[in-house]
């Protein structure tokens, strides 16, 4: 056995089917994605899973080709077993189980949120950051403490990305909505009060979304967009600040699909300046859903012998981040 090991990761929780290959030295050898884009409306879980079934094989092949490795050089197969949409998770898990059986190598279930955190830590080389993870499905402020990633603030209902996407669609902006929403907001001048809901450590976006949608037609779209973003990001900034003050971490790591928002980056950078914390943004390739992050988190678990037999490789659509033991951090 060579000293360098390789792990292949399958990401398949929502709109992206991703396959990535990493080496034990945290080098991303390849990271290929195929993204499902709904013709209208939001993600339809069954249609998304059909897309993933269709593109799985080509995506895995391309990832292998780019990495310059053959399947026989892979030491473990990792897959995102939750949280996510059931039909998508089942498709990803099926592909991973098949690959694991084919090459007779361990199968590693990975928590999707942990993968976002771990790839961020690896590429920024920031050992112990406060993580702000925002995407279409998750809005979590988390930090490591006593064996697990603890949650110091999260959405109580819809995710930030979901809130913005839904509003953008209601305004008639085409996919992807958030950049267009931000461009519109940059022209906005007048701030309209909208529900700003911070409950202790947590935030709630559902009332904000409903109110904003009801204002469409009554308020200029640019002013409404400005107000929505100000309130939505403002709430997240406040929760981040609270978590930073409470945990006293020295840095903040922004990741997830919404991490690419320049407006949000500016806001969190300002929060960090005020608290003398270092600020990192994971680059879009590795911040959005991708296979490489699953492979890397899978490698960390693989080192701890956390593999499962195929017959026990269940998916966990509602697997909370703070349920997972992370022995590699001890």
């Amino acid at each position: 056995m060579s000293s360098v090991q390789h792990v292949l990761g399958i990401e398949c929780t929502a709109h992206t089917f991703g396959c990535g290959i990493i080496s034990s030295e945290a080098a991303v050898l390849s990271n290929i994605k195929s993204e499902y884009t709904p013709k209208a409306g939001g993600i339809h879980p069954r249609e998304a899973s059909q897309h993933h079934t269709e593109f799985a094989s080509a995506t895995v092949k391309e990832a292998l080709q780019r990495s310059g490795l053959t399947l026989s050089k892979i030491d473990a197969i990792a897959f995102s077993s939750g949280p996510g949409l059931g039909p998508c998770l089942r498709t990803g898990a099926t592909v991973a189980r098949m690959l694991s059986l084919l090459i007779d190598k361990p199968l590693i279930p990975v928590n999707h949120c942990i993968a976002h955190i771990e790839i961020g830590r690896a590429i920024t080389k920031e050992d112990d950051p406060l993580v702000v993870y925002v995407s279409g499905g998750n809005t979590i402020v988390s930090a490591y403490s006593d064996g697990r990633y603890r949650i110091f603030g999260e959405t109580l209902d819809v995710a930030l990305g979901n809130c913005l996407d839904t509003f953008a669609r209601a305004l008639g902006l085409p996919h992807p909505g958030v950049p267009k929403l931000e461009a519109l907001a940059n022209e906005g001048k007048i701030f309209i009060p909208l529900p700003y809901v911070v409950k202790g450590q947590d935030m709630s976006y559902s009332g904000l979304l409903t109110t904003a949608i009801r204002q469409i037609g009554k308020t200029e779209p640019k002013d409404l967009s400005l107000s929505l973003l100000e309130v939505a990001y403002g709430m997240l900034a406040e929760v981040t600040e609270r978590a930073l003050a409470h945990t006293e971490k020295a840095s903040v790591l922004l990741t997830g699909g919404v991490a690419r928002s320049l407006r949000l980056q500016r806001i969190l950078a300002s929060v960090c300046r005020e608290h003398n914390a270092r600020f990192y943004v994971v680059p879009p390739d590795l911040a959005g859903d991708n296979g490489a992050m699953i492979a890397w988190a899978g490698y960390l678990a693989f080192r701890e012998n956390l593999s499962v037999p195929v017959e026990c490789s269940f998916i966990r659509p509602k697997w909370r981040l703070d349920e997972v033991e992370v022995p590699w951090r001890k």
Binding site: F191, P193, E230, V231, G234, E274
Partner: peptide
């Protein structure tokens, strides 16, 4: 809060 809209900031 430098990052917050001035109206929202004063209100909060």
């Amino acid at each position: 809060k430098e990052y917050r809209n001035a109206d929202l900031d004063a209100y909060i």
